Computed example of a mutant assay.
Amino acid sequence: MFSPSQTLDFSRADIDNAVSLAASTIAQRPTIAQLTAAQAILSDSLVFLRGDLGSGVRLILQLAFGAWKILTASIEDPRADVLVLGPTGKAARRLSEVFETEAKTVHAALEYDARTRAWGRLRSNPLHHGLVIIDTLHMLPDDALYALIKACPAAHKAIGHDPTCLAAPAGLPNLGTTIHLDERIRIPANCLPPVAAEIGLPF
């Protein structure tokens, strides 16, 4: 039975297989680190991906998106839906083309009222999506990210992290331990793109 606060989870084997299948449909061949990052997105509640230009953050998000579609293809559950978000209208339009699905701004998805400065979607009125993708963090106000995390308790959340931002955004509770991918998968660091993952549980 659908619960708006319960994450839709899959076995590690199913996630690995889905990510591999998704990778086979993408022209660019992903690295081991990029595959592992995509697997982490579908395993954890909140993942920040941080990398310099060309490190493949968007490729990782595409892998996670494709793998999620494979995992949920036969599931009739509102949490099977994916929500792709951009910080601005222009960014959302670009993401609609990249992911071939309708993307929204964070403010639109969370039903922000500029007059009252209130968010229509919070924990008391959550979004049902099982996977939420934000392409970039650097143009997103801290209060919007805070509201998004509260509004998506049942979602695996993946956020492209500004490479110049070394810490969690101000005002947010502790998101958990920062895990570098070379520590997680134990392969030489020089084989990895400059990507890091911050993993934590929603509050």
Rank of each mutant, 00 (worst) to 15 (best):
V84R: 02
V106M: 06
L35A: 14
G51K: 07
D77R: 10
L110M: 06
Q28W: 08
A80N: 03
C152H: 00
S43I: 06
T105Q: 12
G86K: 03
A158W: 14
P87H: 11
V106F: 05
R79W: 04
K104Q: 12
I149S: 05
I133F: 14
I32W: 08
S124T: 13
D113I: 09
L127N: 01
G89R: 14
D77C: 02
L122Y: 04
A40G: 00
W68V: 07
G51F: 05
W68K: 08
V82A: 03
S43L: 13
L61A: 03
W119A: 04
T36N: 10
H128A: 11
A64K: 09
L137R: 04
P126M: 10
V84I: 15
L71A: 06
I133G: 01
V47Y: 05
V132G: 05
V98I: 15
P30H: 07
R79L: 09
H128N: 06
A80Q: 00
V57C: 12
P87I: 11
Y146W: 10
A114L: 09
A38M: 09
A67V: 04
A158Q: 07
V106S: 00
L140W: 00
P163S: 15
D162H: 10
R115C: 08
V82N: 06
L83G: 11
L46F: 10
H129T: 10
G130W: 08
S45N: 04
A151T: 07
V132S: 05
A144V: 10
E102Q: 11
T36A: 15
E97Q: 09
P78I: 14
K104H: 13
V57K: 15
R117V: 09
S55M: 13
A103F: 11
I26H: 06
L46D: 00
L122G: 08
Q34E: 09
L59I: 11
H129R: 10
P87Y: 08
L95N: 03
A103I: 13
K104D: 05
D44I: 01
P126G: 07
P87N: 06
H156V: 12
R29E: 01
D143S: 06
P87V: 12
A91M: 03
A108L: 12
L122F: 00
G56E: 07
L145S: 00
A144S: 09
H161K: 12
L137G: 00
K157E: 03
G51S: 07
W68M: 06
A114S: 13
Q62A: 02
A37N: 07
K69T: 13
T31K: 14
E76K: 14
P163F: 14
E97V: 15
E111M: 01
D81H: 11
A147M: 12
G130Q: 10
E97G: 00
H161Y: 08
K90E: 05
A67N: 03
E102M: 10
A158H: 12
L53M: 15
L46Q: 02
I133W: 11
G89F: 12
L131W: 11
A67L: 02
V47A: 11
T36Y: 13
L46I: 13
I133E: 05
D162R: 08
A155Y: 04
L140D: 00
S43W: 03
I60L: 09
A67P: 01
E97L: 12
D52P: 00
L145W: 00
V84K: 07
I133S: 02
S24C: 04
H107M: 06
L63N: 08
L95E: 01
A23D: 06
A37W: 11
A158R: 03
T25F: 09
P163A: 15
R123F: 12
G120I: 04
L49K: 13
F99G: 05
